[in-house]
Design a protein around this nucleic acid. Structure first.
Length: 770
DNA sequence: CTTAGTAGGCTTTTT
DNA sequence: GCCTACTAAG
């Protein structure tokens, strides 16, 4: 066991303890993945068969990389038998094998979030509920959390607390929607993401023989990122490990950032109570970052109350302080970051690929992207809408889904009229209505339109029959053609490219290319499967594709580009240089997190994750004003900057926005001041004198949220309504209204063809025309 | 039934 | 600013 010498003492202890339950608290950069891989290698060397090891990871990518590393240690042949993957992918595999036990077929469809939303929408419509109140994603979130907590529709309805909650949320008929949603999914032979976990629990609950089978089969269970597991996941792991308790969970409570997806930090905090004789190992030495970065991150996370105390330390060099970049506008922030990247790379000190720009929301990527492009800096954006979420790709996939599972109603809905074949909403609704009254799927109605008395005229009936026949022909070929051959034929026959994207607009060209790309990917998939002597049929491909994410489509992973992604997506990664951008109140922490201490702490953990991605250099940037929802808003620096011990931060003293040195001493006061004194202009900037405060508290508001934008009409002596002004970009316009927005003077100006703009005097250089 | 044009809504993070 | 959902006209 030569390789054990490559571990430090705590790591080694964690690896060697295999007799019972163990919890490994792994600080950021402390070699968590190393412990997991070495532990698996250790188990294998101890004689455990690879198929007896179940290792659950958070992303497909993590699983793939870990598997590759283990393969390097114990050989490809052994590693390939490991059960290693995400909860979703491992248990969808098991669910397909055992599908008949719970009333599904092995080709069940996996509904993605948009399928779920679309289904919910149609249910809400059918129940004649207000779609504005019963919003699809709101309802979906509720369903999702119910499922993650393993609450069935029946249990939900009978739970007074939950139904009371629905009353408060003004969705009293939610239980009904939930119930119908489940029925409809089952009828469509479909599971949503949450079902993959819920139905696994159902499977094990209702089939003790199967639970025994898998329990005996998985002799050792490892769970990575345990802090981000939800109740459904907890239960699966608990059930499978109950008899032998040979389980090792690894995680860092300080990096729990997925509660919005039902993750429960108590799973890790309470692990000791869930298993008997738990051994806890703490990994506290950070091998990734400089001391400055580690200490800064520690000082930040220290502000959280709920945490397992640990002392993360680094023995690397002290390193440079975290650099704070302050910009007037979000636009300028982009160029500051770009300029800094140029400086870092021009002396060959760093390569582009060692640099990452991290942000809170995907919407921020565009601006950074523009700035990088202007400066000729190569970049790669992760996330946003992934390849598999593009319309044209989803359409092709929907064909595949329908062919593989004709009861997949969301797929049918999606493509029955793509390309346009004269089957509109009216006809479609008739089909669904008919299907509902006979309690069958839409596909069955299409198969026997006469028998089900579908009330359509001859023309529509012909079109429907043609469509049905086309799908049937494909369906007959599912077992004879491989996925690539079949999909090629679908794309051709159905006319997806030739009819829908036939013209030569750039958009159509790009869509055609995307479809080509998909075909290429399927081709590669088939070749690889066939090489491994596995089947390469359409359902095989489909079962994998629905669980893929953007990060799995690594097209140019090794090229020299700056990485751009959300902080969530960056979890588990590391970069020599990290820029955290948009570190402003209401954005980071997000305004959604401000009403509870719990969610604010999660935001702080998210910031902790961001900081600890950096190896040697870290930048934090914020802008004074930011474009959001189509208009420019003021933004204050995030409270998190102040949470970091100021000795680790290098704030620019040339910044015009801050009084020298007072920045950290009175920040709280400043923020409070800004929020309460809405008529006062910010004391960071010195604009023209503000007019006398005339703002009055609106009568119907008992409490004003700090981030609410307050607009008040007010006359302005310098810029009277009706006068003409000249703006550098928009030209000449007429003032329609003047007033105050969050304590700053604004003017609404009608620029004729260029529209009416709302501008802040602080920024807009306006010239009054006499 | 389709298309083009417009009004309204909306934004946290993702398997 | 961007996307979707609705509306009016073909």
């Amino acid at each position: 066991m030569e390789f054990l010498n490559e571990l430090n003492e705590n790591q080694r202890k964690a690896v060697e303890y295999i007799d019972g339950a163990s919890l490994v608290i792994a600080g950021a950069g402390s070699g968590k993945t190393r412990v997991l891989t070495y532990k698996i290698a250790y188990l294998l060397k101890k004689g455990l068969h690879p198929s007896a090891i179940l290792a659950l990871t958070f992303t497909n990518k993590a699983a793939r990389e870990m598997k590759a590393r283990i393969a390097g240690m114990v050989g490809e042949k052994t590693a390939r038998y490991l059960w290693m993957g995400t909860f979703h992918s491992i248990f969808s595999r098991i669910l397909r094998t055992e599908a008949d036990r719970i009333g599904f077929t092995k080709n069940f469809t996996i509904y993605d979030s948009s399928d779920s939303a679309s289904l919910i929408k149609s249910i809400v419509k059918e129940l004649k509920l207000d779609e504005k109140v019963y919003k699809a994603n709101v309802i979906h979130n509720r369903i999702s959390s119910a499922k993650n907590s393993l609450i069935s529709p029946e249990a939900y309805r009978n739970n007074a607390d939950l139904t009371k909650g629905d009353m408060y949320a003004k969705v009293p008929r939610f239980p009904e929607v939930y119930k119908i949603y489940c029925t409809r999914c089952k009828q469509a032979d479909a599971m949503d993401f949450d079902d993959l976990l819920l139905q696994t629990n159902v499977l094990f609950r209702d089939n003790p023989d199967l639970l025994d089978k898998y329990r005996n089969s998985f002799q050792y269970i490892l769970v990575d990122e345990y802090q981000d597991t939800n109740f459904a996941q907890y239960m699966i792991v608990k059930k499978l490990s109950e008899t032998h308790e040979r389980i090792c969970v690894v995680g860092d409570d300080a990096q729990s950032i997925y509660s919005f997806r039902g993750a429960n930090i108590d799973n890790i905090l309470q692990f000791k109570n869930a298993y008997t004789n738990t051994q806890t190992f703490k990994l506290e030495q950070n091998y990734r970052s400089t001391q400055t970065i580690v200490n800064a991150a520690n000082s930040l996370i220290d502000k959280n109350v709920k945490q397992i105390k640990k002392t993360v330390f680094s023995e690397k060099e002290t390193g440079s302080p975290i650099k704070l970049l302050t910009a007037f506008t979000d636009f300028e922030e982009g160029s500051l970051v770009a300029a800094e990247i140029n400086a870092l790379t021009s002396k060959n000190e760093f390569q582009y690929q060692q640099i990452a720009i991290l942000y809170r929301t995907n919407a921020q990527s565009r601006l950074q992207e523009d700035a990088l492009r202007k400066n000729g800096i190569p970049y790669r954006i992760y996330g946003g809408l992934s390849f598999y979420q593009r319309k044209e790709i989803k359409d092709v996939i929907a064909y595949c889904r329908l062919i593989s599972n004709p009861n997949d109603e969301e797929a049918l809905k999606r493509i029955i009229n793509v390309p346009a074949r004269g089957i509109g909403d009216t006809t479609l609704n008739k089909i669904f209505e008919c299907a509902r009254t006979h309690a069958v799927s839409a596909w069955e109605v299409l198969n026997d339109m006469l028998g089900y008395n579908l009330p359509v005229n001859a023309g529509a009936a012909t079109k429907l029959a043609n469509f049905r026949n086309m799908i049937s022909v494909f369906a007959d070929q599912v077992t004879t053609l491989n996925a690539y051959q079949l999909v090629t034929s679908i794309v051709k026959t159905a006319g997806i490219i030739s009819e829908t994207y036939a013209d030569s607009t750039p958009e159509s060209i790009s869509r055609r290319e995307n479809v080509e790309e998909l075909l290429k990917a399927i081709h590669e998939y088939c070749e690889q499967r066939e090489e491994n002597q596995e089947t390469s049929l359409l359902p095989d491909f489909l079962s994998e594709v629905s669980l893929l994410t953007d990060q799995d489509t690594d097209k140019d992973g090794d090229s020299n580009k700056v990485t751009m992604m959300t902080i969530h997506a960056a979890k588990g990664l590391e970069f020599a240089v990290v820029f955290i951008v948009g570190v402003e109140e209401d954005l980071f922490p997000s305004s959604y997190s401000l009403d509870s201490e719990k969610s604010l702490e999660e935001e702080r953990r998210l910031f902790y994750v961001a900081l600890t991605r950096a190896e040697t250099r870290c930048y934090i940037s914020h802008a004074r004003s930011r474009f959001r929802n189509g208009q420019s808003n003021f933004s204050n620096p995030s409270r998190f900057i102040k949470d970091i011990d100021s000795q680790y931060i290098d704030a620019p003293n040339e910044s015009v926005f801050q009084p020298k040195q007072s920045r950290f001493s009175n920040w709280d006061d400043d923020v409070e001041f800004e929020r309460n004194r809405l008529n006062q202009t910010s004391n960071y900037s010195k604009p023209r004198p503000a007019p006398e405060p005339v703002y009055q508290q609106p009568k119907n508001l008992t409490r004003i949220k700090a981030d609410t934008q307050i607009v008040q009409k007010m006359e302005n002596a310098e810029f009277p309504v009706g006068s003409f002004v000249k703006h550098a970009i928009f030209g000449v316009g007429q003032i329609v209204e003047t007033g105050i927005v969050n304590g700053n003077e604004k003017v609404d100006i009608d620029f004729g063809q260029k529209g009416t703009k709302s501008l802040l005097l602080k920024f807009a250089k306006l010239e009054v025309l006499k």
